[in-house]
Amino acid sequence: MSEQILNARPLLEVQDLKVYFPVYNKSLIRKKIGDVKAVDGVNLIITKGQTFGLVGESGCGKSTLGRAILRLYNETTGRILFDGRDITDLKGRELLRLRRDMQLIFQDPYSSLDPRMTVFDIISEPIKLHEKCGKEELRKRVHELMDVVGLPDSMMTRRPSEFSGGQRQRIGIARAIALKPKLVICDEPVSALDVSIQSQILNLLADLKKEYDLTYLFIAHGLAAVKHISDDIGVMYLGRLVEVSPKSQLYRNPLHPYSQGLISAVPEPDPDLKKEENLLSGEVPSPINPPSGCPFHPRCRFAASCGQRCYTERPELREAEPGHLVACHLFDKEA
């Protein structure tokens, strides 16, 4: 991590965030029988101007974390600090004002746009909601936004059904940046798109970041895309961050056995790179009843030789080398 980033002001700070969803039994008299621990104690700092990538398999809590930061869930404990202000308990008008500064780009460009609204309606809606803006100026701003995301002006009065997936994603992006937010949470923005369109959208996001001075939280399961766009990357497993590191270190030298398995499972578009030694066995356990101790121990190839600690004691996220955090007992022995 460069000096610059270390000294930069944190834009977002998440402290011990937990999002639990209650599970009820199926009988007539509803009784709570447990919790889905979607996010289970996450600490995270994103500095201004940074792109923080969040990777993990489905069900690891990465999307829930993103939405909890936007305050879209109330079932939370812990603190969220945004731009130096505690936003955990904001309500009503205050919360609405906060949303100006935090926006979301959705995964599915088909269900995230209202099919009955025109492109103009969609992009102008956040502006109308948050600012007093005359008709002429509104048109001008929508026009500018469409230009920035690469949509021809003539399409302003069309509806989403007339667009391809890539173009729809551009509409969603224009809507997200309409208010010049400080933080944009991109929740799998390219997963639903074709390969040749993915790179177009990734480049667009990189351009917008420069132009609008944005900070991204980029959530995805495609590791190569995350690596391309991010500065720092966090790996999530069962609601917890298991490794946080600058991207180059994470890919060159992944420390957590889960990160190693995840990275080696990515099929590389190069037939000469066959790497399979770290193939993970088994599947992600249920977040209702996560394994004791280190939640990764049932799939970990070191757990058996590592001693009892993995089965009983949950490892904390600690610095293993400068700027590189990992939650694994393999690394706190040396400390």
Binding site: G166, V195, S196, S199, Q200, A224, H228, V266, P269
Partner: peptide, 24 residues
């Protein structure tokens, strides 16, 4: 060629991805 060069790769860093402009 375009498709291969437009996929982000794990073992290299590029500032911008190559793109195939347009749509199918």
């Amino acid at each position: 060629e375009g498709l291969l060069s437009s996929i982000p790769k794990m073992d290299e860093d590029v500032e911008r991805l190559n793109v195939i402009e347009g749509m199918v």
